[in-house]
Every structure is written in structure tokens, then in C-alpha cells.
């Protein structure tokens, strides 16, 4: 059991534990915060596995932007503060399928890799990652930038207030744009 193993176990437990709390908590905001912890633990896992750039990008983008965005949405949709009782649908199908998927995959991996040791990887520097991106993966890189552009445009278009005015609410009055 090397240091790497211990770190992997600890961070893994943290990630899984907080992930479980994300999907089971009855507080909306606490779910978001548990998500932050989980994503941070995963970033730690990346560091142990030698993917440094990915780890820091994870912190920047995921924790810094995505979760913030989610919490904004929680605010804007007037989410209740404190526990809400009706946050969940029936547990059985979700438990069956989720448990089946997760445990099945885990079994698959355990069966594939058993207790094999691998050498600890070299840290992945930005230089090397950059070589890959602009070397072998340059075309996907360009495509993804176009994708980002279209996502931006799409988000703007979807947020237009006059889209909401097309449909009448039961009260019969137009919605105030958020």
C-alpha cells in the first residue's frame, strides 16, 4: 500500500460519500455544496493520477463556474431554503437501475483489473497536453470551440423573454422576464 493508494482511497471515499449526499439530501442548496466537495475530491484524484492540468481545469471550470451557475439557478427558481419533502420520486426504479449500473460497472472493473499494480505516472505537464491537443486532437479542438459558440448563442436565444410570452399562463398574464 503506497502513499498513492492511501490517497486514492481517501479521496475516493470522499468523492463517493459526498456524491451520495448530493443525490439524497433534502436540502437543495446543500446538494449543491456537497457537489462542490465531490468535484474537489475528484480533482484531488486527478492530481494523484498525474493529470495536473485536468485537475486545475476541473477546479476552475467545474467548481468555479458550473456549480456557481447551478446555485444561481437555484436562487432564480425560488428554491425553498430548508428541507423540502417532495424532492424525490419513487425510489425503487431509481435504486434498481442506479445500483445495477454502478455495481455492475464496479464489478466489471474489479474483474478486469483485479489487484494489478501500475507504475505511478509521470505528472502530465501543460506542455505535453498542449502538444497533444494541437497535434493529434486539433480538429476536435476546433469543433469544440464552434460548439461552445453555438451553446452560447443557444443559451442567449433560449433566455429571450418573448419566447415565454408565446404561451398564456392559466392566470392569463404575461410573465415578467427573469
Amino acid at each position: 500500500m503506497t502513499v498513492a493508494d492511501v490517497l486514492l482511497l481517501a479521496l475516493g471515499a470522499l468523492a463517493v460519500g459526498s456524491g451520495a449526499l448530493v443525490v439524497t439530501s433534502s436540502h437543495l442548496v446543500r446538494s449543491g455544496l456537497y457537489l462542490v466537495v465531490s468535484l474537489g475530491a475528484i480533482a484531488g484524484l486527478y492530481l494523484v493520477l498525474g493529470a495536473e492540468l485536468v485537475a486545475w481545469v476541473q477546479i476552475l471550470v467545474y467548481v468555479g463556474a458550473v456549480v456557481v451557475l447551478l446555485l444561481f439557478a437555484v436562487m432564480l427558481t425560488r428554491a425553498p431554503i430548508g428541507p423540502s419533502a417532495d424532492l424525490d420520486r419513487p425510489a425503487l426504479p431509481a435504486a434498481l437501475i442506479g445500483g445495477g449500473a454502478g455495481l455492475g460497472l464496479a464489478a466489471l472493473f474489479a474483474d478486469a483489473f483485479r489487484w494489478v499494480r501500475y507504475a505511478a505516472p509521470e505528472p502530465g505537464t501543460a506542455e505535453r497536453v498542449g502538444e497533444q491537443i494541437f497535434g493529434a486532437w486539433v480538429l476536435p479542438f476546433e469543433v469544440i470551440s464552434i460548439l461552445l459558440l453555438s451553446a452560447l448563442v443557444g443559451a442567449i436565444v433560449l433566455s429571450r423573454p418573448d419566447i415565454g410570452a408565446r404561451v398564456d399562463t392559466p392566470a392569463g398574464e404575461p410573465e415578467v422576464p427573469a
Partner: peptide, 16 residues
């Protein structure tokens, strides 16, 4: 969503 996920799980199990 339940239906799609269940089907995917089933297919994965069959593939494995």
C-alpha cells in the same frame, strides 16, 4: 428516463 436507463443497463449486461 427510467425506461432509457433500464434499457441501457440491460444492453450492457447482455454485452458483458
Amino acid at each position: 428516463a427510467v425506461a432509457v436507463c433500464a434499457a441501457a443497463l440491460l444492453l450492457g449486461a447482455i454485452a458483458w
